[in-house]
Every structure is written in C-alpha cells, then in structure tokens.
Design a protein around this nucleic acid. Sequence first.
DNA 1: TGAATATCCGACTTGTTCGGTCCGCATTCA
DNA 2: TGAATGCGGACCGAACAAGTCGGATATTCA
Lengths: 152, 152
Amino acid sequence: MLKLTKKADYGLMALKYLAEHPEMPALSAKDIADAYGIPAQLLAKILQRLTKTGLLRSHAGMNGGYALARDARTISAFEVIHSIDGPFFITSCTKGAKGCDLTPSCTIKEPLARVNETIAGVLKSISIYDLAEREAAAAHTAAAQPLVSLTL
Amino acid sequence: MLKLTKKADYGLMALKYLAEHPEMPALSAKDIADAYGIPAQLLAKILQRLTKTGLLRSHAGMNGGYALARDARTISAFEVIHSIDGPFFITSCTKGAKGCDLTPSCTIKEPLARVNETIAGVLKSISIYDLAEREAAAAHTAAAQPLVSLTL
DNA sequence: TGAATATCCGACTTGTTCGGTCCGCATTCA
DNA sequence: TGAATGCGGACCGAACAAGTCGGATATTCA
C-alpha cells in the first residue's frame, strides 16, 4: 500500500526523459511511450494533464509534442504527482473539505498529518533534474547536506 | 495517491485505544469499534491479523478480548501498517520478487526507492505510545534531535 | 488544398482492490 | 448449557486504476 499510481510513475518517467533530451524542441507522446514501452494513449492523457497544470508546454501539428515548461531543476516530484493524482493524504480522513467524516474521535490523524507533511517535504525536495542527471552521481556527490530533517 | 487504507487507520486507532487503557486486561473488538463508531466485524478481522503478527494478544470467551502484546513504546506505526496492508512500496514496480515488470528502462525507481525508505523510517520512528500519550505534548517536548535526515 | 502528424478530451471497458457483511465454528467462563 | 467472545473463510457491492476507443481540433508540409 501507500503506492503511487502507475500514471504518476509514467509522468515522472516522461518528465525525466524530457529533461534528458534538452536538445529536442519537442517530443511526442508516442516518442516517449515507445522509449519506455508504455501505452501511448495513456501517456498522452497524462502529458495533457501536466500541460494543463503548467509543467509542460505542448505544440500540436507535425514535429509537435511536449517540452518542459520550466527548468528541470525547478520541477519537483511532488508537483508531478500532485498534478496527476491530485492532492495526496496519508490518512483516508485528512480533511478534504469536511474533516474526519463521522469519527470526530479519530485522534490519530493529527500525528499522521505530520507524517504526511514530512513525506510531501521529501517529494518536494526532489527535482526532475535529480532524477535525470544524478543516477549514479548521487551516491558519491553530496553525501553531506541532508535535504530533509524533521523534528517530531 | 499514497493513501493508507482504512484498515490500517482502524488498526492504529485500535492500538492507540488499547494503549490508553492499560488498566483493562482485555478489550473486545466490539468495545473498541463502538468507541470509534467503526464496523465491529471489520475491526475484528483487523485485530485478528494484528494478533497473528504478534502485536496483540487475544483471549476468547467471556470477558475476553485483545491486549497489547508489547509495551506501546516498542510498537511502531510501521509495524501496524505493515501487518495490515502488507509490505509497502511507493512505486508500483519496486522489486517484489521480480523487479520492474517489463520496463527495465525504468530508471526512476532507484531514487524513489530511497524516498520509500525515508517514509518507512518516519513511520518506524513513531510508536503507538507517541500516538496515545503525546497528542499535545509532542509539540514542545523533543524539538531537538531530527529523527530523519536523508541525503540524496 | 489536402494529407499527415499532433494534441485534446470525453466515454467506455475491464480488472482489481477495498470496505464491509454474513455465517459457521472454536473457546472460555458463569 | 448457554452467552460472550475470538477465529476465519466466503461473499458482495462500490470505487478506482489502467487502458482503449473514437472523434475533434490544431499545425505543418508537400
């Protein structure tokens, strides 16, 4: 459990792919789908969504396709996941409009909300650039400054 | 969307409730279910599962019920969730026996695996005791040592 | 202009999982 | 014996994820 949807995975993979090919003015959904062997039509819808939320720029017509709307460094994994899967909450009850449905007694959600924020923080600290360029590098480079530190 | 199942929620709530009532030798599934207004039969199955994984001790018959098998301080949220929902993985592909199904090109899972570990670490650092007794206290107490720090 | 390549977008199908219920059996105790 | 409880499988309905289909629109190129 606690799983990302495949769509979010696909979205991250696609953005990573775009970040790895900055020389291309645009890549079509099909191009990317073929590169990873994922259903093109499905990926297309995901990319459309990312376009609507402003992470991608699209261009129709021949030689059209998608390109990153911003620098890969400024696009976080959190944004991608949020765009595709919507706002995420660890607990089923964390307030989405109306609080904890019918269990005002649910005193558990307060500590879990903090966990939720922590996870969100972790995801926010990871950029598409990190996914694309780091790969092996990550292991040896930094190793110094912790990106996340939480106090509970 | 990265959500805990309701069962896991219920399980955490139940354990918290048990931790809050150490004076009782045992509480029945119905007692706890009534306290939170959750379906008794469903909670029963959850508690049975927690019993099988060793987090609870059960006693049948009249005045029977469930009790914590260990000190609340030594039971982590991670254990509870894991017992109920099974092993959790952020990505749909993170290796459960056979790696990434049909996408060896999925180079994204390595960084996400680290995120996964981070989240697991956070959940492991939270005990049932924390849920039960801390509540308000948590905010002011520690505030010192960061429980989690990850390098990416 | 027309064909080819794209994005765009909603509706639909299919399979799985989750939440929840039901029923029968085993255990304990008054 | 019988009431209260845990145990555990079978089952069901609803929600959701994954993927497909079909059609509309935009852009480019010959």
